[in-house]
Computed example of a mutant assay.
Amino acid sequence: MEEKLQKIKEIAQREMKEAESAHDFLHVMRVYNLCLHLAKTDPDVDLEILKAAIFLHDIARVKEDSDASGKIDHAIFSAKMAQKILRNLDYPEEKIKQIEHCIVAHRFRSGNEPQTKEAKILFDADKLDVLGTIGIARSYTMAGRYGEKMYLDVSIAQYVKENLVGGKEGGRIKVISKHAPNLEYELKFKRIPDRLYTKEAKRIARDRLKFMDQFYKRFKKEMAGEK
């Protein structure tokens, strides 16, 4: 098992060598560590399925990021790539299906809810990586890349009405330069604990959100010259 997993890891590293820092292989390894932590409480988790899915879950991220058409969903495409890789390594078809499910279901927007223990753990760990100090670092990495503002002191209702498609929360951002990490935090990240499946992931998420809340409150005061 370990030999095959090492080969999978090496393949994923090669495929992701050009990935931007928020979704590079260091992200994969952070998710790996979180997954192993979350899996400790359940002896029935299949670690071979889980580990393979972790290494492969973002393998098509570079392809999505370089796709100007916006048609590539990295979760779906990663699952297709994983299928070929796993078959070449002589994985049983049943395990391939389970690994594919974990990969497809790890993304909010895929519309595929995690059904297995392994898929739920991967989903939770992947979401935890956008929270806390790492989440803040990732947010500002993305903000710099796409031209977002550092901070915008606007009402959430006003922002949703003016800059989200349909004037509804969850709508696509119209103008990225009118977006900012603190708005992403308010509209998306604060709600992550309610979307998680495992008790431990919910605990970690709440703890990380406390730090983010303190950070953005401090940021607002510094912007106003109060600190």
Rank of each mutant, 00 (worst) to 15 (best):
M1G: 11
E3D: 08
Q6D: 10
K7Q: 08
A12E: 02
R14I: 13
R14L: 14
K17Q: 11
E18V: 11
E20F: 14
S21L: 12
S21P: 10
A22T: 09
H23D: 07
H23R: 13
H23L: 07
F25D: 01
F25C: 06
L26D: 15
V28D: 05
R30M: 09
R30T: 11
L34I: 13
C35T: 03
A39K: 07
T41S: 15
D42L: 07
L50H: 08
A52Y: 00
A53K: 03
A53M: 05
I54R: 08
L56T: 00
L56V: 04
H57K: 09
D58E: 04
K63I: 14
D65L: 09
D65C: 15
S66Y: 11
A68R: 15
K71G: 12
I72G: 08
D73V: 11
H74A: 02
F77W: 12
M81G: 06
K84P: 02
I85W: 00
R87P: 00
R87W: 11
N88D: 14
D90M: 12
D90A: 06
Y91C: 06
Y91L: 04
Y91W: 09
E94T: 11
E94Q: 13
E94R: 15
K95Y: 13
K95T: 04
Q98V: 06
C102V: 02
C102G: 03
A105L: 01
A105F: 03
F108R: 15
F108S: 15
E113G: 06
T116S: 13
K117M: 05
K120A: 02
K120E: 07
L122R: 00
F123H: 10
A125H: 06
D129V: 10
V130F: 10
G132V: 00
I134M: 11
G135R: 03
I136T: 00
I136Q: 00
Y140R: 13
T141E: 14
T141F: 14
G144K: 13
R145C: 01
G147H: 06
E148T: 14
E148K: 09
E148Y: 09
K149E: 05
K149Q: 12
M150D: 13
Y151T: 01
L152P: 00
V154A: 01
Q158A: 09
Q158S: 10
Y159G: 09
V165R: 15
K168M: 02
E169K: 15
G171M: 12
R172D: 12
K174I: 13
I176Q: 08
I176P: 01
K178P: 01
A180R: 08
A180G: 01
P181E: 02
N182D: 01
L183F: 02
L183D: 01
Y185M: 09
E186D: 11
L187N: 01
K188W: 07
F189Q: 14
F189D: 05
K190Y: 00
K190L: 15
R191M: 10
R191I: 10
I192S: 00
R195H: 15
L196S: 08
Y197S: 04
K199M: 06
A201V: 01
A201H: 01
K202W: 00
R203V: 15
R203E: 14
R203W: 10
I204T: 11
I204A: 02
I204S: 02
A205L: 11
R206M: 07
R206S: 11
D213I: 11
F215Q: 06
F215I: 12
Y216C: 07
Y216P: 01
F219S: 08
F219A: 03
E222A: 09
E222D: 14
M223V: 14
A224I: 03
